[in-house]
Design a protein around this nucleic acid. Structure first.
Length: 113
DNA sequence: GGCGTGACGTCAG
DNA sequence: ACTGACGCCACGC
C-alpha cells in the first residue's frame, strides 16, 4: 500500500471538526477563533480557524460572520467585510457595545460539553 | 522547494 | 496591567 502524497480526507481533521462546530452555531450567537480551535483540539490553532474560514466559507457555506476575536470584536478591516459582518450580526439580535464590542457573556455560544 | 504571511491566541517579561 | 514574541499550519510567491 503506497503512502498517499495528498492529505487524506480524514473525518477527524482539525479542519473538518472546526467546520462542524461553526455550522452548529445557533442564530444570534457567536464564537471566538480560540474557542473553535480549542474545541477542535488545537488550543493554539486560532490561525488555522482563520484559514478555514477563508477557504471553506464558499465550499462549506460557513456562517463566517458569527466568528469573532477574543475581544468580542470584529477583526475584519473596514471595507473588507467589517460592515457586512456587523450588519449580519445585528440582524440576528446581536448587540454591539460603544466600542463595537459584543457582550460575550450573553452572545457567546457555549456548546454542550 | 523554501520563506513569509495571516479574519488570533496564549505565554513570558 | 501592558508590550513583545512565539506558536499553530495552510497557502502564496
Amino acid at each position: 500500500m503506497k503512502k498517499q502524497t495528498t492529505k487524506p480526507a480524514s473525518p477527524d481533521t482539525f479542519h473538518t471538526r472546526a467546520v462542524r462546530l461553526i455550522q452548529r452555531i445557533p442564530k444570534g450567537k457567536v464564537v471566538t477563533y480560540g474557542q473553535v480551535a480549542t474545541l477542535a483540539g488545537e488550543p493554539r490553532g486560532a490561525r488555522q480557524v482563520v484559514r478555514i474560514l477563508n477557504s471553506s466559507w464558499k465550499t462549506e457555506k460557513l456562517p463566517w460572520h458569527r466568528v469573532i476575536n477574543r475581544n468580542g470584536q470584529i477583526s475584519l478591516p473596514p471595507g473588507g467585510g467589517y460592515e457586512l459582518q456587523k450588519s449580519l450580526l445585528e440582524k440576528e439580535n446581536v448587540v454591539f457595545g460603544p466600542d463595537d464590542t459584543i457582550d460575550l457573556g450573553r452572545f457567546l455560544w457555549k456548546p454542550r460539553k
